[in-house]
Nucleic acid binder design. Structure first.
Lengths: 330, 330
DNA sequence: GGTTGAAAGTAGAGCGCTCTACCCAAAAGT
DNA sequence: ACTTTTGGGTAGAGCGCTCTACTTTCAACC
């Protein structure tokens, strides 16, 4: 920077102003500085800038699982929104482990990011709150309640009932759900399902699972092993539904002739032609965008927490059909 | 930091040593400092640290496309390897646009990351070299030649011939390829395919495409529109193959009875039960790991460039079968 | 007993910026 | 003709660390 200033025949402070596009610089000296910078291959050091200014223009984005397209699709939306606001985004993954999440967030804190976007964090409300008091925080798909940070959530409760409605309309009464344990969204989807079933006087059949293919396959195997297997399966998310479909195919059970399958998220996975999964739509990109908007509001000074709730929507594809007349296979 | 030093009754320099786990600190004062830091909720400022030390322990990872599981799976490998080496990873996406890539890399340069890991960069060799002279760089799946940076590539040439071998073994002679234009890996796969076909005296049928589902679907439509459609399609990658499968299903063409389909990458997409795509395996995680290893070697002082070539392997699933006796459908 | 040397710790000059306060000249106001 | 304003610019003190060089203490050695 000194070199640039010397070369352009101005002060260091002026170079700084030029680099930050300040309007307080005359055209002529701006050009002189820019030319000198170009010649010298000068690029401002972000670390020094952030250190001096106390601002980083950077949002730390912690994704629960890079594997799950839901998260990368959300990140895309967040990245686009951030770019528009001149914010930088840093993506990190918690690798589905508490320790991993903590480490990722700590790394962001050490960097003094201007804000935190946590997607499906597994950490406890207390831990999240402790971070939220230090920096603006928004939790997406995390289903914790707090006045200290903003949230963007899907109305999973309603999602569960949409699934049940759809299946009941098709004549199904024995419906199984593969849950996702305590993973964020897991309990909400399970509860939505159970409530909707009970309201219709139907017995909710639930087996334990997780948000991945293996758990979906294992859950499907358990359900199909029942004396009277269900005629429809509601998987915890699309990833698990894929596992269900794989296992059912392995077992020679036809979808949707013998059994119907529903996922959740409407990720790219569900729209694959040969998969064609009926699922609950989540506007992934928009979730990311809203989250960035909320953070921007916080940076602009908003104090009170905001909680956005997105309404889910059923997307019907070919993995669901009428309840078979005959008994289910196997 | 001053506060911590004061509270612990030591100098600032000692606090610094403790924070960096230096062995030159006695147990007693280490504990004093740690306790004081804990009390005050002190966390070292990474920006200041990096500024002062001139090292960031951070690798910038630029992924071509967050959508494509190939890249996120590679990033997982890189992240794991980096963690072992006490390096931090920053993920950014070029969003499949040259300008996006440039912006992402510039951002890394401004941050003075210790190294650059570029996955399937579209930028020209000259541009890449200009970055490589400034910081250790490794290009994964990029297929450019340079003495200035390391590369990790798949032997795509061989991959193309594996596909042709497999299909020819199954009796196919009319084989179509949907290419990926000038996208990294695109020309290599196309050339490998064409060479292998010609060596066997077969006419290579090629249509223009890209590495996504839409292009796969469009390419499949074009190929099936031919007077004499191919009996097998080699898509540019798994994502495109998914598009092919979707389109074929739409057209009522059965896979693999009427037509065989092959992908490339062996991403999670290909192993989905209902997809079950024959594809070329790439060790995605290992690619990321090797890339980080190469960067670590550079950081340790290696000067001459290294180029790793990974041998591909065919994974046979159920999207390929014997050439049908009768003519193809449509 | 004096010298050596390791172990433990400190002082203070940077690292490359930004920011506050201030200056100077030319244009504008009275 | 004097002050006031304003656009354009500068000096220099930080920001929160690390790093080099140096000091002090104390056990070990001949």
């Amino acid at each position: 920077m000194d070199d640039v200033a010397a070369k352009a025949g101005v002060s260091r402070a002026l170079v700084s102003l030029v680099m930050r596009d300040s309007p307080r610089v005359s055209k002529s000296s701006r050009e002189k500085v820019l030319a000198a910078a170009q010649d010298l291959g000068y690029r401002p050091n972000v670390w020094a800038r952030n250190l001096a200014s106390g601002q980083t223009h950077t949002i730390g984005v912690m994704l629960n699982d890079l594997h799950n397209p839901f998260f990368t699709e959300m990140a895309e939306g967040a990245a686009a929104a951030a770019a528009e606001r001149d914010l930088q985004i840093l993506i990190s993954s918690g690798w589905k482990r508490d320790a991993g999440e903590l480490q990722a967030i700590e790394a962001f804190m050490n960097m003094r990011t201007d804000g935190l976007l946590l997607a499906a964090a597994r950490l406890s409300t207390e831990v999240l709150e402790s971070f939220a008091t230090q920096t603006p925080t928004v939790a997406v798909s995390t289903y914790v309640e707090s006045d200290l940070f903003d949230t963007v959530n899907n109305n999973e409760d309603h999602g569960g009932s949409l699934v049940v409605d759809h299946l009941v309309d098709l004549g199904h009464t024995r419906i199984g759900h593969i849950d996702a344990g305590v993973a964020p969204s897991g309990p909400e989807r399970r509860n939505g399902f159970m409530k909707a079933m009970l309201e219709r006087g139907l017995a909710p059949i639930v087996v334990e699972g997780a948000f991945d293919e293996e758990a979906g396959a294992a859950g499907a195997a358990q359900l199909m092993d029942l004396h009277e297997p269900p005629t429809a399966i509601f998987a915890g998310n699309d990833l698990a539904a894929i596992g269900v479909l794989t296992k059912l195919q392995e077992l020679g059970v036809r979808v949707p002739d013998d059994i119907s399958v529903v996922g959740y998220d409407n990720t790219i996975l569900s729209s694959i032609g040969t998969v064609s999964l009926t699922t609950i739509h989540q506007p992934r990109r928009q979730l990311g965008r809203i989250a960035i908007d909320l953070l921007a509001e916080r940076l602009a000074g908003r104090e009170e927490a905001r909680h956005e709730l997105i309404e889910p929507r059923l997307v019907t594809r070919s993995s669901t059909g009428r309840k078979p007349k005959a008994k289910g296979a196997t």
